[in-house]
Design a protein around this nucleic acid. Structure first.
Length: 540
RNA sequence: GCCCCGGUAGCUCAGCUGGAUAGAGCAACGGAUUUCUAAUCCGUAGGUCACAGGUUCAAAUCCUGUCCGGGGUACCA
């Protein structure tokens, strides 16, 4: 049984025995030293009900019969906490478990459930920016976390290959083409102007000659293909691959957009006004109705989004995660509403919203716009920093906080990036283990209970928390928490390493036990780093 | 206008489903090194948790209001 269950049972037994019906209590890690490893507020919460002083209740609970003396001792402390002191014996047992389970330690067994994670999903109108990078890495790590949790994960990229944006892109590309072949053509209003389009135009000339006219479909298809190639390349450089690409166009072709419209109309949830089709969102608690089909006859993004999500639901995933930028905060509820109106299941959809990245360059905040081409690309970042550093950089802040990305500082600080701290801990262990094998050839008996020093036990304690940590993270979908945890593990290891000599010819039994602890620390570090998609080199 | 996020050490940020004496990294200062890889460790200093009310045995954490900063807000996606 898990540790937290054992502790919960202990308190529950007390409540049952005294016929107290009460469940508003919890057990938390103790923040203060000297009060055990975990503590419960149950006594404090019970004061009103029992009309006794909290300390008195706490003492009563702490003193009631404990069937788990091998796992924990108890104490009560002011103002009324029940403290659990976990025994070394228990930790030693977990250490043995880590060493046996190795790569599987903390990993959930197969759930036989499918999860879909949609992320990046930006239209192929230009290279990926640093802003997209945050989402790419966040989504990738969330996918890893869900895989670790036991899901079969599909990574999906959805984009619009059919709308106005792509038309403007095609025309912008033609404008570049025209200027290169010496034909007069006015650039479209709000067109794209980035240099990448010059290159694509040149490529079109090279492959298809100079005689093309503006209505040639190549300017759309070729450009889309080229830009997409580029996007895929940028993603690959930070270790990201997608399983499925869904195109908006497909939902026009297979009729699902029409069918969404007709269902909504049938249910009297849409109406026509000013030549447009409106979604009666105001009937469902929204402030105003939203447009589904513009008066031009073109749907807004909302409609295909609903059709696309309906398709995802129909594909039978047990969990659907959408990773969106902050601009979707107002819009995704419409999509969910749409699904509900179609009678689709929505309770298994999780939306992770991340705030935007603001870029500083030369001390100035850069307003990013793909259209105006004053963006910083993920590739530029990649040219300067390693994939490991980039991955870590993006999740060092919570997704829900703005990320001020100072490009100069990132380069400057890449040497100080905490990712090296983690990697160094791992490299240190590798080196030590190799050295151990070389120097000590005897095979002493395994006696892990020789680990009794404070720094040893607290390291094991940290390691033992890994499975629960992953459990929490797979709920909250916050990779940052894993990074923070791994930093603690690395710190715990470095501390242990500084205090204790592992290789000691005069005490082989202790040496061996310590070596085992090093192995366990490495197991947890490597497992964690693999989830973050960060390498664990054995030498640095 | 409406919506979202943030305001915690000099700087960058953790902590926020309420719990005990508010943490880490960087920067500053002092120490440890014939190294099991110092990309490390130990210590010192640094705080009115934006402000004001409220709820509670208990508030950085929850509620209300105010101020400041960032972002979003189309018949663009």
């Amino acid at each position: 049984m898990k540790l937290n269950e054992l502790m919960e049972n202990f308190i529950q037994e007390y409540l049952d025995k005294n016929k107290i019906d009460f469940d508003d209590w919890s057990i938390n890690q103790s923040t203060q030293k000297g009060f055990g490893d975990y503590s419960s507020n149950v006594a404090l919460k019970l004061t009103k009900l029992l009309k006794k002083s909290p300390l008195e209740i706490a003492e009563e609970i702490a003193n009631h019969s404990n069937n788990n003396k091998k796992v924990f001792d108890l104490s009560a402390s002011k103002p009324g906490f029940v403290n659990f002191h976990i025994t070394n014996k228990y930790y030693i047992k977990v250490l043995g478990q880590i060493l046996t389970e190795k790569k599987l330690f903390g990993k959930h067994k197969k759930l036989n459930q499918k999860a879909n994670v949609e992320f990046v999903s930006c239209n192929p109108t230009g290279p990926l920016t640093v802003g997209h990078g945050r989402q790419a890495i966040l989504g990738d790590m969330i996918s890893n976390i869900l895989t670790w949790k036991g899901y079969d994960v599909t990574r999906e990229y959805y984009y619009n290959d059919a709308g106005k944006q792509m038309r403007v892109l095609a025309e912008s590309c033609y404008a570049k083409y025209a200027s290169q072949v010496g034909v007069e053509y006015k650039e479209p209003k709000n067109g794209y102007v980035g240099e990448y389009l010059d290159e694509i135009a040149a490529l079109i000339i090279e492959k298809h000659g100079k005689e093309l006219t503006v209505d040639n479909a190549l300017f759309r298809t070729f450009t889309e293909k080229e830009i997409f190639k580029d996007i895929a390349k940028s993603l690959k450089r930070v270790g990201i691959k997608f399983d499925v690409f869904s195109k908006e166009g497909a939902f026009y072709k297979n009729g699902s957009i029409d069918s969404v419209l007709s269902i909504l109309k049938e249910k009297n949830l849409s109406y026509e006004k000013d030549g447009a089709v409106w979604f009666k969102t105001s009937d469902m608690g929204k402030e105003e109705d939203k447009v589904l089909v513009k008066s031009s006859g073109e749907p807004t993004y909302r409609l295909p989004d609903i059709a696309y999500h309906a398709d995802k639901v129909d594909r039978g995933f047990d969990l659907i995660v959408d990773v969106f930028g902050a601009d979707h905060i107002d819009t995704y509820p419409d999509v969910i509403l749409g699904l509900k109106c179609l009678g689709k299941r929505t309770d298994h959809i999780k939306v992770v919203i991340h705030q935007f990245v603001t870029i500083k360059k030369g001390g100035e905040i850069v307003k990013m716009s793909t259209r105006k081409a004053n963006f910083i690309t993920l590739d530029e970042l990649n040219d300067e920093l390693s994939s490991d550093v980039i991955r870590y950089f993006f999740i060092m802040r919570g997704a829900n906080s703005h990320l001020d990305f100072d490009l100069d500082l990132a380069k400057d600080e890449s040497e100080k990036n905490p990712v090296y701290y983690l990697q160094y801990a791992n490299a240190r262990i590798s080196n030590l283990l190799a050295r151990y094998e070389k120097e000590i050839t005897e095979n002493p008996k395994i006696d892990l209970s020789r680990l009794i020093e404070k720094d040893e036990i607290s390291l094991i304690k940290l390691l033992s928390e890994f499975p629960q940590k992953m459990e929490d993270i797979s709920e909250s979908l916050e990779p940052r928490k894993l990074a923070t945890y791994l930093e603690e593990v690395a710190a715990g290891y470095h501390k242990f390493y500084g205090n204790r000599k592992v290789i000691n010819h005069d005490d082989l039994d202790t040496s061996f036990a310590r070596k085992k602890l090093c192995e366990a620390a490495q197991i947890v570090l490597k497992n964690g780093l693999s989830i973050l998609g960060i390498s664990a080199p054995s030498k640095m």
